[in-house]
Design a protein around this nucleic acid. Structure first.
Lengths: 240, 240
DNA sequence: ACGCGTCCTTGATGTACATCAAGAACCCAT
DNA sequence: ATGGGTTCTTGATGTACATCAAGGACGCGT
């Protein structure tokens, strides 16, 4: 047995609204409880799955924080996303039956293992689940569009501002502060995600702090002026 | 009636293997034929759908060439992809019941309209279709990971090389030459997709031509040395 | 064939970010 | 508490690409 045998059930999980469809009947809810085969604990720094591994399951994050990244032959790698509790991870594996990125825990984490075949079977019967799966995938596509916009057309300050706002917004949706957050990733990982070098990330943090937009103390960030931060985005560079 | 009334059927469409699952029984094939409600012709320069419009259908491209792009309030925009015959477009709309990008025809085009509700209904009954839809979405997610890598960590030459190789590879899969292609988009659109300015795209084309890697004559490109082009990617910049 | 608008090319200059480098702060294990 | 490794900050310098600018080629409609 992978872990202790406390019955795992979505129906009384507090993250239910985040990773499962809403408005289900009791009967449907019961069916959905069957999807989560097991839970799995991942130590900080180790992988939930790696590029090339056979795809079997999607994972719903219960606790902890992950990054996903892809690597090139010559050693560069690109962080493609940061995932937190309630989010689904592993969608990249469906198309070729193997994962095409690494998922690394940035802090000790626990995930619900949802075997993809069960998910397929059940979503043929529970329409709400079928639609939910589609939505989750579509959401990921739309998110990535946003990242492309960020990487393709924003300058460093805009990128970091967008990044911070996105993080607090997601944390806030999980009941955390709108103004305070702890970064679970290094400057280098932030930089990789944003297409910047770690020095640039650090400098930009310092600049924001100087302008009293945020307070930074290592990984602890307090947002002092959300509006100003928001204003940095969509402000066509320096000119004009 | 939108167009002439020649019966639209996937079962004898030559793009079937590209946009539909393979290995179906005759009976399943017949069911799938029902999905395509109508076809729709799009003139060059006009939109298949636009950001904000209500999402109703996915579209399979029969002929023609599209770009998708998103815009910021301040007028910048980012091309998020180029799509050709056999590819599916519109997945961005599922999550919020509205489209979140524009899809513009870069040449006169025709698409098969697949109402999303029919697709959902039928994929509950035809497992292969269900799986196919998931794969199409997963493939898009993985493609976007690749674009993130490109935008986040490659230099101009690598980006353009990767772009050209990706295009010919997809064209080749459709029976076109491996070495020759006609660009359906402007330098500016290429630049937007690659996170570069049009001048940089132009200069990089010229550089490739000077090095006898390609021949460029406006939008007509002939690839003289695929290996060299491939070699440009994953070659950590100038140093070393 | 002509003219006009769009698209493309090429050069000169500017700048945002990368790179190189050194030291400081923090974290954790002993 | 101590020391060593990792992470972060900050400065000096370099560079890839952007910006500005002008001319040229192409394509389309009349």
């Amino acid at each position: 047995m992978t872990s202790n045998s406390i019955k795992v059930v979505c129906s009384n999980c507090n993250l239910r609204e985040l990773c499962m469809p809403v408005g289900l009947s009791a009967e449907q809810m019961e069916r959905i409880d069957e999807i989560v085969a097991t839970r799995r604990k991942i130590k900080r720094g180790s992988a939930l799955f790696r590029n090339g591994e056979t795809f079997t399951s999607l994972y719903a994050i219960r606790t902890g924080f992950f990054k996903t990244s892809i690597a090139t032959e010559d050693g560069r790698d690109q962080v493609t996303g940061f995932q937190m509790a309630g989010e689904i991870i592993g969608l990249d594996g469906i198309v070729n039956d193997r994962h095409s990125c690494d998922a690394i825990a940035l802090e000790d984490a626990e995930v619900c293992v949802m075997p993809y075949s069960s998910l397929e079977d059940l979503s043929r019967e529970v329409t709400a689940l079928q639609h939910h799966v589609h939505k989750v995938m579509s959401r990921e596509i739309v998110r990535e569009h946003g990242v492309m916009l960020l990487l393709g057309s924003m300058r460093a300050e805009e990128r970091l501002a967008a990044f911070l706002l996105n993080l607090v917004q997601r944390l806030h949706a999980r009941g955390f502060s709108q103004h305070e957050l702890i970064l679970r990733m290094t400057r280098e990982e932030i930089g990789s995600y944003l297409g910047l070098k770690l020095e640039t990330v650090s400098r930009t943090f310092s600049k924001f702090a100087e302008e009293n937009i945020i307070e930074v103390k290592q990984r602890h960030v307090r947002i002092l002026d959300t509006d100003k931060l928001q204003g940095l985005i969509n402000t066509q560079a320096c000119s004009a």
